[in-house]
Write a protein that binds this DNA or RNA. Structure first.
Lengths: 243, 243
DNA sequence: TCAATAGTGTCTGTCAGACAGTATGTG
DNA sequence: CACATACTGTCTGACAGACACTATTGA
């Protein structure tokens, strides 16, 4: 009740009364490689879970918010200022999720069109992209399997009612590129004509590049109109996953 | 990069290297009263923000997760084991959000059909339901205005593609009751015939109560069929807000 | 000219909005 | 009976799925 809440507030003045919480920002970074949705994982070098694959992440520092920590970690992973999409996913706070101490993890989802093959710099630690279909979530460290499941569902759901799909492709892109994003993330196939109609009838989803065409493939084929991301954030009406 | 992440892990063994994070669970509890969407707020008795209205909440204890803390706080507020819907919203971690110390707040959204007029027990602290249309978010304590905005958007969005609306009504209910939920939360009006068709054509949204009817109003009128919540969680296709 | 890819047109079923009409309850 | 509320039927326009068709490019 309210009174208890205020008692808790009083106790806030005495830091010794609190358990030592550590707060981390963990990242589920997705990209598209060879038409497959991939997730960035790093191999742990220390106990617990030494040798296991885990989500990249690190501790939130005293001067920064969890959002800032996530963006910093992302820049450290990729070696450059991250320009893609980053959003908070959820917070995982089970008391036993880390056997060493009390760690609360604020998890994030990031999307990027394409990133260097080996993420991270000259560091010896192993990091690689895993196609989500060949990954073994059950073997991930901590509760990261749970986080990855939530992250995948978030990404899949957000393609329905936001323009997030454009964050998976480099500009400029074709309608076909965008279609391949939906097909890879949802594991479905689209009728090209219907997908095209849907995308182009949504104002602000994509904007065409004047006189911009991409040459056909090596085996021939008509050149395709090129597009850039529009300024719309939401899709109305949404593009729903098939039942 | 991955190597740094593991250095951070090493540091985890030395609690002294970490800033003293406190973690709270804050609650945005919504209900429907007299056809208006209302939010539960408590008035703070101590500095900072003494006298300001704030979201109920409290500190996460050493033995519990943030989810458990939220459920515990909710039971303390309402005096009974909470039976409605509770879900995590987001985590707010700006370093300056609490002037006293570093507090990370995991915010939750809760929905309930109807709760006692004055939430909380015999405690003297003030707690009341505020219609969201007459509330002054800018005057809330801490960053609670921000949290409330996010919570409102979450609730509004979730009515679109989940069966969450049924959490706002007591069982058994009529289709009209459910319509009033959508109208109050979205601030729109529905055509009764179309709303009815939509609800009843979604399998598992509601199930009718055999031989259950509610008498007409005091001024006359046909009795209405009664329903209970179905077992569906998602609405497919969704009920979209008007553009 | 052929193969491959881009893009258009059109039919059809489903569904949402609008709204007229019927049924059943209270006074 | 009047009247209020519950419920049903139906028209129409928008749109999604299916798919046949035309256009343009490279070899």
């Amino acid at each position: 009740m309210a009174g208890r809440g205020e008692q808790s507030d009083e106790r806030a003045y005495d830091p010794a009364a609190f358990p030592p919480f550590a707060v981390t920002a963990d990242l589920a970074v997705f990209t598209l490689r060879d038409g497959s949705l991939c997730l960035l994982l790093v191999r742990r070098g220390v106990e617990p879970f030494a040798g296991c694959w885990a989500l990249p992440g690190g501790f939130v520092q005293p001067h920064e918010s969890a959002d800032e920590a996530a963006r910093r970690e992302l820049a450290e992973e990729t070696g450059v200022e991250f320009a893609g999409h980053l959003e908070q996913l959820a917070t995982y706070s089970d008391p036993d999720r880390d056997p060493r101490m009390r760690v609360v993890s604020v998890a994030y989802v990031a999307l990027a069109p394409s990133l260097p093959d080996v993420a991270g710099g000259s560091d010896a630690a192993e990091a690689r992209w895993w196609p989500v279909t060949s990954m073994r979530p059950a073997e991930l460290a901590f509760d990261h399997a749970h986080i990855v499941g939530d992250a995948l569902e978030r990404v899949r759901a957000k393609l329905e009612y936001t323009t997030l799909a454009t964050q998976f492709v480099d500009e400029p892109f074709t309608v076909r590129d965008l279609q391949e994003v939906y097909e890879a993330v949802w594991g479905v196939t689209w009728d090209r004509a219907n997908f095209r109609r849907k995308v182009l009838s949504t104002p602000g989803f994509v904007v065409s590049v004047e006189h911009g065409v991409r040459p056909g493939s090596a085996t021939g084929g008509r050149s395709a109109q090129l597009y850039r991301r529009g300024d719309a954030l939401a899709l109305y009406p949404p593009i729903l996953r098939p039942k």
